[in-house]
Design a protein around this nucleic acid. Structure first.
Lengths: 284, 284
DNA sequence: AGCCCCTTTTCCGTCCAGCGGAAGGGATTT
DNA sequence: AAATCCCTTCCGCTGGACGGAAAAGGGGCT
C-alpha cells in the first residue's frame, strides 16, 4: 500500500468537479465495490467530503450501495455510457454484422475504438469453445498490444503515432511488439495491406486478425478483430469475412468508399471526435 | 424527470456535485450531442459555469467533443458503466447462456434489472428477422409495460409494488396493463406460475415471455425475456428454454435453489442492492 | 461588403457553499 | 473493558466556484 499522501507541499488543489470525478475514478475491474473509507483513502479526500459526495452520487444514481455498505458504480452510468456515439451508437449499428461474422467464423469478435493511447472494446462477442481472451466489453488495452489497436494506430495521424511509439510500451508476452522501429515497419504494412495479423501480443495462446472500419469522411473510426487459438488453420482465411463485415459496417456509417450502389444515404451522425488540445502543463 | 426548470422563485440551489451531474443528465437518446449553450439552457446553469464544467468533464474523459463543437458522452463513461455489478458483471456471466437461448428460439432476448420504478436492459440481443422492438442495451422502461419489468415487479416487496401501482402508469398501447387491480391479479399469477406472458404492452405487434433470475440468497436480481412477433405459434413453447436459461444463469450467480449437483460454488459477489432511504424532504 | 444575431471563450470581484476538523455512535476484535 | 475500526453528523471558516460582462469568433441575410 503505497498510498502515502504526499502532503509535502501539495495540499490537494482540486476543483469540486474533480473531486466528484476522482470518486468515480477509483472504481476499476479490481475494485468493483469499495467502502467509504476505502474511497476516502484512495482519492485523498477527507472522510466528510467523501461521505457527502457519495450521498449525492448515490441519490443521482451514479453509484449504488450494497447490503454490506460498500459502493459500486450504478446503473445510471451504464445507461449513460450507451449514449456515447462511438460506443453504444456504433455498437447498435454494428452488432448484427458482428453476429453474422461470429456465426461464420466462430472466433472471438471485438469492436474497438480509440481513446487516448488505448483501444476500448465497444463490443466483445466471445465464442464458447475457443481460447478465453482477456477482453471485456468496455475493456481498455494499449493500442500496440492488440490487433484492433494496431489497426487504429496505423491509421492515426503521424504525430499521434510517434507520440505513442515514444511512450513506454508495455510488454505483455515476449512476442509483444515494443520496438519502435519494428512497429513503424509493421504499421506501414498494415496501411498497405489493409489488415493486421499478429500473434500472442497480449496472451501466449492467441492470434488476432483485424481490419479498419470507416465512417463519414472515410476516416477510420473503429476496427473489427477476430481472435482465434494460436495454431488455427489459416488466419488469412478469415480476412475475406472480416473485410466484408468491415465494409458493411462502414457503409452503414456512411463511408463514401463503401457506398457502391444507390443505397439510402444513412444519416451521418457526429463521428470523428476532434482531438482536443489542452494546455497539458500549466495548471489552468 | 422533473426537468422543467421552476424559475418562479427558486434561484437554483444546487450543490456543485449536482451541477456536474445535471450536465451529464441532459444527454439522452434524443440528445446525443449538444452544444455549450444547449447544455447551459437545459441545465439552467450560467454559460460560464457550464463552460468551465464542460472542460473539466472533457479533460477527464466523461465527455467528448466533436468537430462541430458539440459535446457527447465519452467513452470513459461507457467503460465505467461496465463496472456496475448489476450491469456489466451480470451481463458477463449471462451472455453465453443468452446466446444459446437466442440460437434456440430466434427471438429478441432481453436481460433486465430493476432501477427505481423502471427496468434497465443490461443486454439486448436482437434477432435479424423479427419485429423490431424498441429496446436498446441500456434502455430504460417502466416496469408495468414490459415482460421483464412485470416479472421483477412481481418479485419485489409488497410496499414497493404498491408504490409503483400508485404511481402514474403510462399507457403505451390499448393493451398496456394500467389498472392497479388487474395488475395485482396479474402479478399474483406471475408469482404462482413463475412466468409472465404479455401481449402488446409497449408496441402493438409483439408479445413477450419473461422469467426471473435469482442470485445469492435466492433473491430475484434480474429477469430474462423473449419478445416475438404477435401471432407467433405458441409463446408457451418458449417457456422451457427460458426456464433452462434462467436456471443456468441463476446457478452461475450462486442461487441456492438452482444448485443441484456438486458444482463449483461460484464466488458470490455483491448482489442485492440495498434500498437506501433518504430524508426525501427537507433539503437540509 | 457590412450588418445582425448567436455561440463560444476569457476575465475578475464577490460571497456563500463546500470544506475539513472533531466528536459521537456502532460494530468487531484483542 | 479497552482499543480499533468504520460510518455519520455537526459547525465555523475560508478560498474557490459562481455569474455578470465583454471580447472574440461565425454564419447567414440584405
Amino acid at each position: 500500500m503505497t498510498v502515502l499522501a504526499d502532503k509535502s507541499l501539495e495540499p490537494h488543489r482540486l476543483t469540486s468537479a474533480q473531486r466528484v470525478l476522482s470518486i468515480l475514478g477509483v472504481f476499476d475491474t479490481e475494485n468493483l465495490a469499495l467502502s467509504l473509507s476505502d474511497i476516502s483513502r484512495r482519492t485523498g479526500l477527507t472522510l466528510s467530503t467523501t461521505h457527502r459526495l457519495l450521498n449525492e452520487l448515490l441519490r443521482w444514481g451514479a453509484l449504488s450501495r450494497h447490503s454490506d455498505g460498500k459502493y459500486s458504480i450504478g446503473l445510471r452510468i451504464l445507461e449513460l455510457g450507451t449514449l456515447a456515439p462511438q460506443g453504444g451508437q456504433l455498437r447498435e449499428i454494428a452488432l448484427p454484422y458482428l453476429h453474422d461474422l461470429q456465426h461464420a467464423t466462430r472466433g472471438n469478435i471485438h469492436l474497438g475504438v480509440p481513446e487516448g493511447h488505448d483501444v476500448i472494446y465497444v463490443e466483445s462477442l466471445r465464442a464458447r469453445d475457443t481460447v478465453p481472451v482477456p477482453s471485456r466489453l468496455g475493456g481498455r488495452w494499449p493500442m500496440h498490444a492488440t490487433g484492433t489497436g494496431l489497426v487504429l494506430l496505423a491509421h492515426s495521424s503521424q504525430e499521434f503515432q510517434e507520440e505513442v511509439l515514444a511512450s513506454k510500451l508495455r510488454r505483455y508476452t515476449d512476442h509483444t511488439l515494443t520496438d519502435p522501429d519494428a512497429l513503424r515497419h509493421f504499421l506501414a504494412e498494415v496501411r498497405k495491406s489493409g489488415v493486421a495479423i499478429v500473434q500472442s501480443q497480449l496472451t501466449h495462446d492467441a492470434m488476432a486478425v483485424a481490419v479498419p472500419i470507416r465512417g463519414p469522411r472515410d476516416r477510420v473510426v473503429a476496427a473489427v478483430g477476430i481472435t482465434v487459438p494460436l495454431g488455427s488453420p489459416s488466419p488469412h482465411s478469415l480476412v475475406p469475412a472480416l473485410a466484408a463485415t468491415s465494409r458493411s459496417i462502414s457503409r452503414a456509417l456512411g463511408a463514401p468508399s463503401a457506398v457502391t450502389d444507390a443505397g439510402v444515404p444513412r444519416q451521418t451522425a457526429h463521428w470523428q471526435v476532434r482531438e482536443v488540445k489542452y494546455s497539458s502543463s500549466a495548471g489552468r
